[in-house]
């Protein structure tokens, strides 16, 4: 039953060197034509953080901190920095097979690496921003607690979810092109349904609404990363939520790998 899934992981593992080398070239190719080069990897997020801070932090919240003592800007950064990684990776990862299959099908190179290469390629920026976030947290006078130890767990959750999602999604996006447009609109919507720009656990939001929003897997990831930095709950303190997240990821991976191997040979015919 798990044959496809095993095969999928085997391919990734056997080619892990290739994945990293290809990812490096992807990033290089993306920024080489710009005069400011890879500085754009930082300029883009800074501009966006600035806008969201003015609109949501100052405009809507009047600069009030979250939960009484967490500065809004810091709280916002902890949501936006993962989001700047998650959102483009999901969109580009889904598009990766459609975009590149023509190139790679002529070579002995498994197609399933394409979404992974995107994930790894975007990780360089993300990990750099994560270090910046860590420094900013220190500058705010918030020092790491034991809970920082669970950051690797939440990063692993995020990567597993992205991997499962892009395998599933890249297959659909190749077969049905409309899906890519739908996904782009959905991502814009999910930004507002995740605890990134506003706090769904604040007192103005009824409990039932907050609970429904928790079904969104990004809620799990982003709140988890925040709790690692700010010393919140441990990840095993909410086993039901943990199980929910991993069941969802598993289902995506299961159907994703099945579909991927079912259609792999026909991808070129669908271009």
């Amino acid at each position: 039953m798990l044959k496809d899934m095993k095969e999928l992981f085997k391919e990734q593992w056997e080619h892990h060197n290739l994945i990293f080398r290809m990812a490096k070239f992807e990033v290089k190719g993306m920024y080489q034509i710009h005069y400011l080069g890879s500085i754009w990897q930082f300029i883009n997020p800074i501009i966006q953080v600035g806008i969201y801070f003015v609109v949501f932090g100052i405009g809507l919240r009047g600069g009030r901190p979250i939960d009484g003592d967490i500065p809004f800007l810091l709280w916002l950064l902890m949501g936006l920095i993962p989001w700047f990684f998650i959102s483009p990776t999901m969109v580009q990862g889904s598009n990766s097979i459609y975009q590149k299959v023509n190139l790679v099908s002529k070579m002995n190179f498994p197609v399933s690496l394409l979404p992974t290469i995107r994930i790894v390629g975007n990780s360089f920026q993300f990990l750099a921003l994560l270090v910046v976030l860590f420094i900013i947290t220190l500058l705010y006078g918030i020092f790491p607690s034991v809970q920082l130890l669970q950051l690797p767990y939440y990063l692993l959750s995020m990567y597993m979810f992205l991997f499962a999602f892009t395998i599933w999604s890249s297959t659909i996006a190749t077969l049905i092109r409309d899906y890519q447009n739908l996904l782009q609109s959905m991502m814009r919507m999910i930004l507002y349904l995740s605890p990134i720009l506003w706090d769904p656990m604040g007192d103005r939001v009824p409990d039932w609404l907050g609970n429904i929003l928790k079904l969104n897997p990004f809620y799990y990831i982003i709140e988890g990363i925040r709790s690692s930095f700010l010393g919140g709950d441990w990840f095993f303190e909410d086993p039901i939520y943990l199980l929910y997240f991993w069941t969802l990821t598993f289902i995506m991976l299961y159907f994703g790998s099945r579909m991927h191997f079912r259609f792999r040979k026909d991808f070129v015919d669908y271009l």
Binding site: D207, W208, N211, I212, K214, L215, I240, Y241, L243, Y244, T247, L248, I251
Partner: peptide, 14 residues
């Protein structure tokens, strides 16, 4: 999908 639905329902019901 059954476990997913059960877990989801539990979360929504708090």
């Amino acid at each position: 999908f059954i476990p997913l639905l059960v877990l989801g329902a539990l979360i929504v019901l708090g």
